[in-house]
């Protein structure tokens, strides 16, 4: 009986080990699939002490406003939040004032146009999703407020995507209104390559290469998706330091109290 049981056990363990090995072996094949993994970039905001590179984020804002905002909204971000990437109050007022906002109804019941205020959100390029879809071959360009959180390895993916346009390999047919992109799932993306060298004239004199702009706009959009990141990480360090200290203390107290228990 004992022997039988042992044999049964061994067989079961072997079977499970096999399954386990199979599981691990087939993982890379699954993950790789058709679309390559976006290359890992180094970001100022990654890591436990990461903060947003202010200059990069501000250049990224310029790229967003001059390039992306033609099609993509940023509907969850308010101008006032730009203080988070280093803008002063008067700068924010000036940036907000560059857009016209519909407000109202006023006391006469009329809607009216006014200059944007820091309390306003970034204006969307289209009236609504239907209008956005109608102007873009039937599919609305996605909102960018949460883009880096809404994709696996968001910042790396976004950077890879906007720099990942290429000639379609032979045999791949690109339909009208489509573009070939190495990193887009399925490869055919409606968005045309958005960036070209010197497409933007940076106010701080940085050379606007495609790679530079991609990094900058990704930094900006990562901030837009997680404006709390810096506060969160700096609080986290304090919380962890306190907890580690306090837990060490508790361990000492525990040892002391349990000393006499046999």
């Amino acid at each position: 009986m004992r022997n039988n049981m042992k044999r049964l056990m061994k067989t079961t363990i072997a079977a499970l080990a096999l399954f386990g090995a199979a599981a691990f072996a087939s993982t890379p094949a699954q993950a790789a699939g058709d679309t390559p993994k976006p290359p890992k970039q180094s970001w100022s905001f990654s890591g436990m002490f990461g903060t947003f590179d202010r200059a990069a984020a501000q250049r990224g804002l310029q790229v967003y406003r001059e390039v992306c905002s033609g099609c993509h909204s940023l509907r969850l971000v308010h101008f006032r939040q730009l203080a988070g990437i280093g803008y002063k109050e008067d700068q924010i007022k000036a940036i907000a004032a560059e857009v016209d906002v519909q407000d109202g109804p006023n006391d006469e019941g009329e809607m009216f146009e006014r200059k944007g205020l820091p309390a306003d959100r970034f204006p969307s390029p289209f009236e609504n999703d239907k209008a956005a879809a109608a102007a873009n071959n039937g599919k609305a360009p996605p909102d960018l407020s949460l883009m880096t959180k809404a994709r696996f390895n968001g910042p790396d993916y976004l950077h890879a995507l906007i720099t990942g346009f290429a000639e379609a390999p032979s045999g791949v047919e690109v339909p009208d209104g489509g573009n070939y992109n190495t990193y887009f799932p399925g490869h055919i993306i409606a968005m045309a390559p958005p960036l070209a060298d010197d497409g933007v004239e940076y106010q701080d004199g940085t050379k606007a290469t495609v790679g530079q702009m991609a990094k900058d706009v990704t930094t900006f959009l990562s901030w837009a998706a997680e404006p709390e990141l810096e506060e969160r990480k700096s609080m986290g360090i304090k919380v962890l330091l306190f907890l580690i200290f306090f837990t060490g203390l508790l361990f000492a107290v525990k040892r002391k109290i349990w000393e006499d228990v046999h």
Partner: peptide
Amino acid sequence: LIFFAYFVFF
């Protein structure tokens, strides 16, 4: 809580 806080903050 150290384990928990790591995920919450980082």
